[in-house]
Each structure stands twice: as C-alpha cells, then as structure tokens.
Amino acid sequence: MRQLVFIVLLLNIIVPILKTSGKSSHFLVTDWYKWSVLISTIGGLAVAGYLTFIEATGAQIACGPSSECDTVQNSRYAILFGFLPVGILGLAGYVGILVAWLASQFGSSSIKRIAALAIWATCVFCVLFEIYLILELFVIGATCMWCISSAVLLMIILLLVSTPAAQQAFVIKMIRVLAQKD
C-alpha cells in the first residue's frame, strides 16, 4: 500500500511537469488530475476495505515495521459512538468520493457541477476527521501505517479536486446571482 501512495505522489509531481513542458499530449497526461483522483480513491477503498474487514472479523492486522496498528485498532478511538468502526466510516467516505467522481465524469452538466462539489465537501470532511484521528494517535501513543496511508490519499484527492471544486462553486454562485437578476 505504501508503494501505491508513493507512486501516486510521484506521478502527481512528474505528470504536471510533462503537461506544462508540452512533452506529452496523451489524454492520461492532459487529464491527469481526473485519473489521479480515481486511482487515489481506489487505493483508499483498498485501505478502508482492509481495515473494515479487520474490524468485522477480528483478524490480526498486517502492520509492517511500526507494529502499533493493533494498539490503534483496539483503542477506544477506533469505534465512534460506541458502535461505529472508523474503518466503515472511511469506506463510506471513499465510496461517496467514487460515486461522486463517476457522476462528475459521466453525468449531465448540472450533475457534474454538483458532483465536483460533493467530492470536495466529502474530502474536506474526511481530511478534518483524519486530522482528529491523527491527533488522537498522539494520545494513544501509537501510529498505524494504514491510517496514515488513508490520510495521505485523502490529502492527495483533496488537493487535486480543490481547484476544480472551487471553480464549480464559483460557477454555481454566478448562475444563482444571474438568476436572481432576472
């Protein structure tokens, strides 16, 4: 999973350089931010799906070098409101991002605008929640590579969609202003 996060991060550096230098006109380069959102979301689905599986089955988590994932998974911060595992909330967030991404790519123009804002809003909520979880890790005194991977993927997605979402928000606001003048 760390390899996927590293590859996405590296591609988000290399591909924009190729795009601005005019070295490639391939559709994957010209529309990289769009495909990077999809790849990052699929990576996030894998991470959140794995954590949900671990929480649902009680299986041993594969932790890697940190070996503190069990501490995080078994802490009181891994369950919200006494019944909702955080992994399920993360999975729901990534599913929401994926559905909104699909709508933004294949929906009508009005749906595309709303979907772009939905992706952005979902990412903002998820990143703020991840910050809360990371702060709680300082209280627990343990870190989990799965949680950090999810946080990095969400930050990548948020950075990628912030500019298009902000543009869409401006367009929607201008449409509303123009509609009120009529």
Rank of each mutant, 00 (worst) to 15 (best):
1 M>K: 00
2 R>K: 08
7 I>F: 09
7 I>G: 03
8 V>I: 15
10 L>R: 04
11 L>N: 09
14 I>Y: 05
14 I>L: 10
18 L>E: 06
19 K>Y: 09
19 K>T: 05
19 K>A: 11
21 S>C: 09
21 S>A: 13
22 G>Y: 13
29 V>K: 11
32 W>M: 03
34 K>W: 12
34 K>A: 14
36 S>E: 12
37 V>R: 02
39 I>V: 12
46 A>L: 13
46 A>Y: 11
47 V>C: 02
49 G>T: 13
49 G>I: 14
49 G>N: 12
50 Y>A: 05
50 Y>V: 04
52 T>L: 09
53 F>H: 15
53 F>C: 11
54 I>P: 07
58 G>M: 08
59 A>R: 13
59 A>V: 10
61 I>F: 00
62 A>H: 12
67 S>D: 02
68 E>F: 00
70 D>E: 15
71 T>S: 02
71 T>R: 01
71 T>N: 00
71 T>P: 00
72 V>M: 05
75 S>T: 05
81 F>V: 15
84 L>W: 13
85 P>T: 12
90 G>K: 01
91 L>Q: 10
92 A>E: 01
93 G>M: 10
93 G>Y: 06
97 I>A: 06
98 L>C: 09
99 V>H: 05
101 W>M: 01
102 L>T: 08
102 L>A: 13
102 L>M: 09
103 A>I: 14
105 Q>W: 09
108 S>T: 12
109 S>M: 08
109 S>H: 09
111 I>H: 03
112 K>G: 05
113 R>V: 02
114 I>K: 15
114 I>V: 14
115 A>P: 05
120 W>A: 01
122 T>C: 12
124 V>C: 09
125 F>K: 07
131 I>M: 12
132 Y>S: 11
133 L>H: 05
133 L>M: 12
134 I>P: 07
134 I>R: 10
138 F>A: 06
141 G>W: 05
141 G>R: 07
142 A>H: 01
145 M>Q: 02
146 W>A: 01
146 W>C: 03
146 W>V: 05
146 W>H: 08
149 S>H: 03
150 S>G: 15
154 L>P: 00
157 I>L: 02
158 L>W: 12
159 L>F: 14
159 L>I: 13
160 L>N: 13
160 L>T: 09
160 L>M: 13
162 S>Y: 06
162 S>W: 07
163 T>L: 10
166 A>M: 11
166 A>W: 08
168 Q>C: 06
169 A>W: 05
169 A>P: 02
170 F>E: 14
170 F>L: 15
171 V>P: 02
172 I>T: 11
172 I>C: 07
173 K>H: 05
174 M>D: 14
174 M>E: 14
176 R>E: 15
178 L>S: 09
182 D>P: 04
